[in-house]
Amino acid sequence: MSAATPKHTVLHPVHLEAGAKMVDFGGWDMPLSYGSQIEEHHAVRRQAGMFDVSHMLNIDICGPDARAYLSRLLANDVAKLTVPGKALYSCMLNAEGGVIDDLITYFFDENTWRVVVNAGTADKDLAWMQNAAASEHFNVVITPRRDLAMIAVQGPQARERVWSVRPDWAPATQALKPFNGVYVAEDTLVARTGYTGEDGFEIVLPADQAKSFWQDLQAQGVKPCGLGARDTLRLEAGMNLYGQEMDESVHPLISGLAWTVSFKNADRAFIGREAIEQATIDRTLVGVKLLERGVMRGHMKLRTPQGEGELTSGSMSPTMSVSIGMARVPAGVQAGDQVQVEIRGKWLPAEVVKMPFVRNGEIVA
């Protein structure tokens, strides 16, 4: 398939039938919104919304060297994963310490693991992972699972809505802790994860079951949501977006992701470790709230007490009714500092705030 031809998830016809506004996202034709992006955002904060995230790629990693391989591949330490179904968020780095991708890794048993990678980086990630395994002779089998679909159901009522349409999943998932997953049927994984700052599930299931599941949820009042709401939700939740807060040119310690890098085991030589241990930490990622009317966007310039910075993301916050953003700024800038943002040639006042901006529907910034 040529780069000019967008890829389609199995739910693509459903989105078109619903009248969704479609856009290219990482080479995929995906719904931006189904009408009102604001209503979709509020549905997730107040009740429940669902997202087609089937463009993301599930990759199974199996074999006797799986743990050793992932220990080498990831900046976070899979030694933390000992309970079946437990998940770990991590970055996968290049030799220079730049972020190839951020991903979630699931442990099921010593020979059976899964990583979930971003859509726009999936092909690059897969090639990198296969090369890392082959070049260092790890005994693993790496299998991309494009036979699977993935639906995120998010919001304070999300789990109850899922149980209402799939009651047979309830016994296995009612006690599921955050950042854990469990198989409820063959090739059907329910994980208590998300990208919105709300509770909920991300469900991986056979592609041929996705349409009926989506339609059943919609019949129970779960609102279909697009990329627009997904972006404002993740921004309010203080969650990074690959390609904006981090990429191959920046390492995780200046991307607000130091907590995902584990140096605890001095003998664990993960790819990129030496580079980021030697790097100068001269910048940091902070939250910014605009104090006047206007809308901040990525790449706008900032003035701070310590020097210039740049917004990596920015939008109007539907929950807070003000513009918020993330910015890469000189080290030493901290919450409470007054800064200025250049919007259409004018420097407007803003404040550095601690992230997240919103947690479980409540404004905290």
Rank of each mutant, 00 (worst) to 15 (best):
K7N: 10
W347A: 01
P305T: 08
E308L: 05
V182L: 11
I324F: 01
F357S: 13
A327S: 00
I276M: 04
E39L: 08
E160S: 14
A119L: 05
V23T: 09
Q218G: 11
K211I: 05
R293V: 07
T260I: 02
T260M: 10
G325Y: 07
G287A: 07
Q340E: 13
F357R: 13
K80C: 05
T9K: 10
K301T: 08
G120D: 03
Y195L: 04
S313G: 02
D199K: 10
W113N: 13
V353D: 08
S135A: 12
L126Y: 10
G294D: 11
S249T: 15
D77G: 08
D147N: 12
Q278D: 07
D125W: 05
T5H: 13
R161P: 02
S313V: 00
L290C: 09
Q338E: 13
R230E: 07
P305H: 09
P224I: 12
D29V: 09
L241T: 06
Y242S: 10
G336P: 09
A122L: 02
R45F: 01
R344Y: 02
L285K: 04
F108K: 13
M246V: 07
L32H: 15
L57D: 00
V117S: 00
K86C: 12
R344G: 01
A75K: 01
A175C: 05
I363F: 09
V358C: 13
W259Y: 07
W28P: 06
K7I: 01
R268T: 04
E248G: 12
V322I: 09
A279T: 08
V78C: 01
P349S: 00
D77N: 15
N240D: 05
G345W: 05
F263P: 01
S262C: 13
G221D: 05
N131W: 12
W163M: 08
S262P: 04
F179L: 14
T312N: 08
L103S: 04
M56L: 06
E277T: 06
W347L: 04
A269P: 00
D101F: 00
A185N: 15
M246F: 11
T280H: 11
E292F: 05
M22P: 00
P206D: 06
E96F: 02
W214V: 02
D247N: 13
I104T: 12
L57C: 00
L285H: 01
M30S: 13
P356M: 15
E202R: 03
E362P: 01
S317T: 06
R344D: 08
A152E: 15
W128P: 00
L88C: 12
E198G: 02
T5W: 11
V23I: 15
T319I: 01
I151M: 12
T188W: 11
A331E: 06
N139D: 15
V190H: 13
R230N: 06
N240M: 10
S317G: 04
F357T: 12
L285E: 07
W163D: 06
A172I: 03
P318L: 05
E39K: 10
G272S: 04
A132M: 13
V78W: 11
R283S: 07
D29A: 15
K264C: 03
G309E: 00
L32S: 14
R166W: 14
R159D: 03
R72K: 15
